[in-house]
Design a protein around this nucleic acid. Structure first.
Lengths: 216, 216
DNA sequence: GTCTATATAGCGATAGAC
DNA sequence: GTCTATCGCTATATAGAC
């Protein structure tokens, strides 16, 4: 085949298909050849739309980050200073997005890369905190702290995929019920640790917020 | 060469050399052939001591985790209930260990794997918290929460290696001073976010601790 | 039972034809 | 913009020397 009239591939279609493949079979299943097959083209064709494979994975991660809701930060202002609820809602939305794509989570770890949605998110958080009364420099610190917690919680909870995926255990594990219970227990621990950690962190940040307000 | 009288390789020597190589040239530099060359043997020889490459990387990560100090948890008891200082010291030791091996940090993300030192650490934290008066179930939650924060902070700060490694910038970047300043600024933000987040989290956990003490 | 030698299948990526 | 062909590389399996 030579050059088609209309492109067979677009960057978006590649990213979409890659995410579907990651969700279905894990990160390791994404090779350029396999992905190309899935798209009905030959492997090297991808390189007309994507610089490297790392670039592609970066884009897939960014697509998942794009699913995180950040609208709650726009409502914050001198009148509505409930930054605490905003951070809480954001954190839960973040976790929900990662839970929907557990197999991509390890790729979160590979440096910041060039991720537009990550920047949009950082900007929204920073802007919201400043609008709610945090000093600019402190807002950067708080946003970074929250990012630490959210990244760590996502990796700690979902990096290995879902162990509750019973189909995986069914073949390898004879004591299916037991494995299933262990997985459920682990999920309860993760959910508790997330909620307790989040609320504790917010409690601690509120102490700091008041301290700064009294001093300033 | 045939079988030598004394083994040329041991699992520990392989892991040590792999860590040295990771520190010097990054994770990507570790291939079985390269590592074998470094050890003075042929590539496939490694597989007598290591199951797969993933198994090896897992062991290297565990070796780094072994550098984290956990002795502070042994001192905790019904008399000395300063769990807060223990968690703080542990957290700083954890961060120091990761800062010493920034290139291995992304490998933290690949699921728990089989890491004896990770288990030893979890056990020490849990035991210390219980000794200091935390209910057992809460101790699990708190330990997990702390792990989230520490993992996230390590990845957020060191996952891309140290951008302040001036030698890297020297070739690629003409405005060396500027890059250097940006890197220093990023490091200050990371240090601030770590300390503020840690102290805020501890503040929040103390509120919870008192709440539980009053209720129980 | 530890190492070497050889071999395989698959990888990311490039060059050049159309 | 997609193709074919191909390069150098990888992890890893297997067979056999000692």
């Amino acid at each position: 085949m030579a050059r088609p009239r209309r492109p067979l591939l677009t960057r978006d279609r590649i990213i979409d298909t890659a995410l579907t493949l990651v969700d279905a079979e894990g990160l390791a299943a994404v090779s350029t050849r396999r992905l190309a097959t899935e798209l009905g083209v030959q492997g090297p064709s991808l390189y007309n739309h994507v610089r490297t494979k790392d670039d592609l994975i970066d884009a897939v991660v960014d697509a998942v980050l794009g699913e995180v809701d950040i609208a709650m930060f726009e409502g914050l202002s001198a009148e509505d200073r409930d930054w605490r609820s905003a951070l809480r809602d954001w954190a839960r939305s973040y976790r929900t997005a990662m839970a929907a794509h557990p197999h991509i989570v390890p790729a979160l770890a590979s440096g910041p890369g060039h991720r537009p949605n990550a920047l949009r998110m950082a900007d929204a958080v920073f802007g919201g905190l400043v609008a709610a009364g945090w000093p600019r420099r402190e807002a950067t610190t708080v946003g970074t702290t929250m990012r630490y917690f959210l990244t760590g919680a996502s990796l700690g909870s979902f990096a290995a995929g879902f162990p509750s995926d019973v189909a995986v255990y069914a073949d390898a594990y004879p004591h299916l019920n037991e494995a299933h219970l262990l997985a459920e227990r682990q999920q309860r621990i993760d959910r508790d640790a997330f909620e307790v950690g989040l609320e504790s962190l917010l409690d601690g940040l509120e102490i700091r917020y008041r301290l700064l307000a009294d001093a300033g």
